[in-house]
Every structure is written in C-alpha cells, then in structure tokens.
Design a protein around this nucleic acid. Structure first.
Lengths: 367, 367
DNA sequence: CGGGTTTCTGGAAACGTTTTCCGGGCCGGC
DNA sequence: GCCGGCCCGGAAAACGTTTCCAGAAACCCG
C-alpha cells in the first residue's frame, strides 16, 4: 500500500486502489460494486460510487480483459464496404454496440480466403466477445474457425443456419414478388434478373425469390435472362452488355442490388437508351443514393436499421444470455416505386423524340 | 513452473511459458526474441522461433498492452460515413494499419459534440496508440482532449495545423483552378459554388480555392452565387433550389463534393432540365459512383489512397518515431472531364434535340 | 594475466483488474 | 446460550506479458 507512495510523480489515471482508499474499503469491494456482482452493504456501495465519481475512475479495459477473458469488443467483418448499403449498416451497428458498452473492431477485408483467414486470426487474438459478419460468400471456413473457438457469431445474411451460428433472416420473397408483380402488371413478359455472386447466400436467396415470383406468374425464367453478376457497378454494366446482345432482349430487368441496377442504367445510357422508355429497371436494397439517380431508381427496400438491430440483438443474447431477448423479427422487404419502370416500349413511341421527354414519368403509378 | 502442471485440462492457447519451456530458455528471452528487443544469441533465437512456430504461439495483446501501455490499436473517428468517399478511405486506412500490426477501432459518431466527446473518452479508455480523425467541423475540443493526453493525432483534412497535431495537406487549389478554367474556356461567366459546411476546415479551404480561381480569371464571386450547403445529397438539392430562384441564375456550378453535385443534378432533373445542356456541373472527390451518374459527372479527383497513405504514415511516425518517414507529399487534385459540362446554352441550340446529344462531349479538353 | 567493460541471460517485479478463498460477525434456531 | 449458516469484506492469487536488475560470461586492452 505504501508501495504506491513511492511513485512520486502524479499519475494521470485513477486506479482501483485510489478509489478503494478514498472510499475506505478494499479493492475487492470496489470491484464488486462497479461490476454489480456479489452483494455489498448499501452504505458502502454509495461510498464507492461517490469515490468513483469524484476521482473520475474508469477501469482499465486491458487489465479487466486480461483476467476476466472478456474483452468487450465485437468484431465486425465486412467485405463489400464500397457498397453504400454497408456504411449505413456499420454505423447503426456500431451505435448499438457502443450503447451496450462494446467497442467495434473493424476488419474490412478483400474477399479472398487468405485475407479473411488473417482477419479471423486477428479477431481471435484480440479475444473479441463476438463477431458480426457482413456478407461474403465462402464464409464456411470463417464460421467454422470462429465457432470452434466458441465465439458467438451472427451473419447478416439469410445464410442457411449452421448449427451454432445465428443469422439475420430476411424475407426476400415479399419484396421481389412485388417487383415482379409490378412489372407484369405493366405488361412485361420477358423479365431478366441480374443476380449477385451466387457463392453468397443472400444472392442465392434473392435469385430463388425471383424464380419463385416468376413461377407464380407462369412466366419462364430462362437461364440467359439470369446472368450472374457480382453486386458491383461494373458487374451491372457487364451483365447489361450481355443482355443487350440477346436476340430477344428483355423489356425489364430486376437486379440483385442497387449497385447492379445503377450499372445497368449506365450501360443503357452508353448505348443511347434510357429507363423506363427502353427498359424497366428495378434495384434492391434502396440505398440512400438510389432516389437520386436520374431517373430515381425503383427498388426493393430492405431496412438496414432493422438488420443492424436484429444482428446486434442476437449477438448480444449469445454473449450475455441474461440479457433480454425477443426473437428478432423476419426482416421485411417491399417495393418502392420511383421512375425507372414503365410499360414495355411500343414501336409507336420509340423513335419519337418529343414523347421521349414526356415518357420520363412512368406510365402506371400505383401508390 | 510446476505450478503450470497443476492445470490438468489442456489449455487452448499457448503461453509464453510454454514457448520458453519448449525452447529451453527463460520467458524473458522469449519476450526479447519475439519483440526483437535487446540482443540474444543466434542459436537461442532460432530455438525460440522454432518453438513459436511449433506451438503456434501468439502473444496476448491484452497482457502485452497492460504492461507496455501500448495497445496497438488505432482509433478511427468518422462522422459522414454516408459519404461514399469515406468507406474507400476507411478500407485503405484499415489495410495499412493491419499491415503494420495495428487494429482499427471504429467510432462513427454523429456530428454533435456530445457524441464526439463520448467517442473520445472511449478511445482514451482503450488506450489507443493514435487517432485518425476524418472530417468533422468543430474538431477543436476533440483535438485538445486527445492532445492533452499526448495521443498522436492526424486529421485527414487540410485543417490549420494545431501545434502538436498533424494534418494531411491537400492542394485544393490546383483541381479547382482547373475546374474554373475549364468552365471559363467553355464560355461561362456566372459560375456558382455550392460550398460544404463552413465549420469544416476542408470545406473552407475548397471555398477559398474557388474564390482564388475566380479572381485569377477576373470574375466576381458574388455571395448569392455561393450558398453554404452541407456536403449531402439533400443539401445539394436545397442549394440548387436557391440558385434556381435567382433572377440571374448561374450557367455553371462547382460543388464542394460529389454528393452535393449529385443533389444538384437531381434537382435539375426535377425541374425538367439537365446537365450539361441547361447547366454545367462539376463535383469534387471523384467518388467511384460519380462516373456512373447519368450523365457521368465531371469532377475533381482527390485520391483517397494517397490520403490514407499519408495519414497513416504521419500517424505511425508519431507513434514509432523510429519508423522511416518520408514527409508525406501534398495531396494533389485534378479535374476529370466527363459529361456534365458544356458550353453555356445559347438560345439557338437550346431547343434543338439533335445538337443536344453532340454537346455531351465537353468542348475544350485541357490536359 | 588481470581489471574493466560489454554482451547476454534468467529471475522477479510490475501492470490493473477479477475472482477465489477465508475469516469474522451476525442472525436464527434449537 | 451455543452452534450452524449466511452474508459481507479483505487478503491474495491469478491473468500473460514486458521490463528492470543483477549476475555470469566473454571480450578487450593495457
């Protein structure tokens, strides 16, 4: 105890011993009070809290983690950080984490297995309390390694649930069903779907939702109308190039995400055409910038706030089983009508420049 | 030593003691070897490394941090994570950090002082080795608090250098000069500038660069042609609404960032006009999506790779003065010509749809 | 050949917590 | 009134490192 007094210079940070001394109790008591573990006398509790306030004591997370084994850090693994959907998701997730006393360790890895493996090692090494995984395909090895160390895990993706791994579940069907129904109602028959990388579960699920919706309308989903892309702007352009080369090009395209849709619109522009007059385009995600496209992009909205909330809730429940936990809801999706969809073009209106401008407004506007 | 043997169950993680035992040396020696501090016999060094490999030993960062005081964590404070420029920056920065053995702790705070203060506290508590600050105005309090704890600090913003704080310096002048020159060459006389939030240093510097460029061309930068906006899509729209209401609206608009420019384009679309026929628009940043706008956005490019590199290099140099450090270069900016700029409309060409298309290519192409 | 200096090594003390263990006091029951 | 159990508080043992310190060995130079 007088060992402390040897250090002559005033230390910047307060110690648990300082608090104990000031409150006139032992350090064990201080620990018990601040962690709300074990029971201590009411009066002592007050004294301790007072001392904590007066000295502005903050326990050292490192020391705490060293002995307790819990770091109060949550790992966040992201690949496609370029996709504007993710920053929003990240921000929301981080906010929730902080509110619950966790820090967020970021790992924005490229999508190759080596980098991912490296990130996992880092997470393990830092002893994260849990990991949230945002969308990469081939997640199996990651999940396995983390799960084998029994690190709580949540994937924000409708991945088929591994035994010990939670997943945020999204109802892709509803939104995509609405999208296809909308197009059919406008009179479209040949509808294409530009899918994401099929190694990703979410991309597969979206594709399946599309196929299901098409079947529901007794339309054939032909393989050449369903190119596999990669959820990037460039990928969208490439896919559109493919579709334009077909002998019977589609009159409408549903895209697996907004970035793809924007790429499609861009390619369309490059060949001197535009939506919705020459092609109807529907995106997915409803990223913030979608409504600022020219024309504003019709898309299927998926609330990233909901996803972040569900993801964090399930993760937290795994980490602290005591915390209250209402089973997170199925994330909903729904069509947002804007201006990239309209009736399939008729020859009558195609080569008429005056109607082109007026055709910017889509034909039917339910809602 | 035989204390260890009491633990009967096999522990998952390897200890420094395991390594020492296996290599037949003391733990001090192991520490010295793995940290490359102090000098040890060549043969022993080999033995230690071999043991490390064989046991797959990874030191516990928590324990290491506890005693050494260095956490090997770098804080990353971001506000406008919605701005697509930042995800790219974040990813690059994180990658550099990881390559140098650091982790990145993310704090994506809203822009209010309370949240920022909270984030700073978290950083301080986790004993980050350094902090990189990405663009918020009113940074003074943060910087002061961190600096007072002598935490190395770098702001990615041309902020006027505080005494002890590094800043990545950007040459805004060059790119904006090119932008204005380009517009003047096309024949524009009344050129507007939609600025960012002037509490941000970077926004102020961009505005000043514009004013300087205008003066260089003997053009007046009138206040009503320089609305203050906020670097968001919505802000761009609002500013454009203002500009459209003027009795003598501008024929060209330079924007403080791409998001603003996209907002401007969108508002233009809403009133039935378009770039470049009715208005020339130039953005700033050259975010990836800019080239996918319809029409592709002419903008001033600022390399986020360069910024990330410079930021990390300066920060690292502060943290480990030993590390090699070439003074990071002034970040360059330059005009990227795309399709949102053209000659100011003349009545003769306005209502002529055929020339409209051909005017998409900007007239002059300096550079 | 000896003394001093340098190089190398191991032991042990720190770092700031949580947690276990134990003892003492108090209460109730017999 | 005595004993058992229960609550509460303190001492001390971890946790896994780095770092200080001291001693041994080797080396250099006179």
């Amino acid at each position: 105890m007088q060992k402390r007094s040897k250090t002559s210079k005033p230390r910047a940070r307060m110690d648990i011993r300082d608090v104990a001394q000031r409150a006139g109790v032992s350090i064990s008591t201080v620990s018990r009070v601040t962690n709300r573990k074990g029971s201590v006398n009411r009066e002592m509790t007050d004294r301790v809290w007072r001392a904590v306030r007066e000295l502005n004591y903050q326990p050292d997370p490192q020391a705490r983690a060293l002995v307790s084994g819990r770091s109060h850090i949550i790992g966040l693994m992201v690949t496609e950080i370029t996709n504007p959907f993710f920053p929003e998701l990240i921000q929301r997730f981080e906010q929730l984490a902080v509110e619950s006393g966790y820090e967020v360790l970021l790992a924005s890895t490229p999508n190759d297995p080596a980098s991912i493996a490296m990130s996992v090692r880092r997470m393990l090494q830092r002893k994260v309390d849990g990991v949230a995984v945002m969308m990469f395909g081939r997640e199996a090895p990651v999940l396995e390694e983390l799960a084998s160390h029994s690190v709580p895990l949540v994937v924000m993706d409708g991945a088929p649930a591994f035994p010990k791994i939670d997943a945020v579940r999204v109802n892709y069907d509803e939104g995509i069903r609405q999208a296809v129904a909308h197009l059919v109602e406008l009179g479209h028959q040949t509808i294409a779907f530009v899918s994401g990388p099929l190694e990703q579960a979410s991309a597969r699920l979206r594709l399946q939702a599309f196929e299901k919706a098409m079947r529901a309308h007794h339309l054939k989903a032909q393989p050449e109308l369903m190119p596999e892309s990669d959820h990037t702007l460039e990928g969208g352009m490439a896919a559109m190039t493919q579709l334009l080369a077909l002998s019977h090009p589609p009159t409408a395209v549903v895209c697996s995400n907004d970035l793809t849709a924007i790429g499609v619109l861009h390619r369309l522009f490059e060949v001197g055409k535009q939506a919705p007059a020459d092609l109807s385009v529907i995106g997915f995600d409803d990223v913030h910038i979608a409504q600022f496209m020219l024309p504003p992009l019709t898309t299927v909205r998926m609330s990233c706030a909901q996803i972040a909330k569900a993801a964090f809730a399930t993760l937290r429940h795994r980490i602290e089983p005591a915390s209250t936990h209402h089973a997170p809801p199925l994330i909903t999706t729904k069509l947002i009508l804007r201006q990239t969809t309209g009736a399939p073009y008729a020859e009558s209106m195609r080569r008429n420049p005056t109607t082109r401008n007026s055709s910017r407004r889509p034909a039917g506007r339910p809602q």
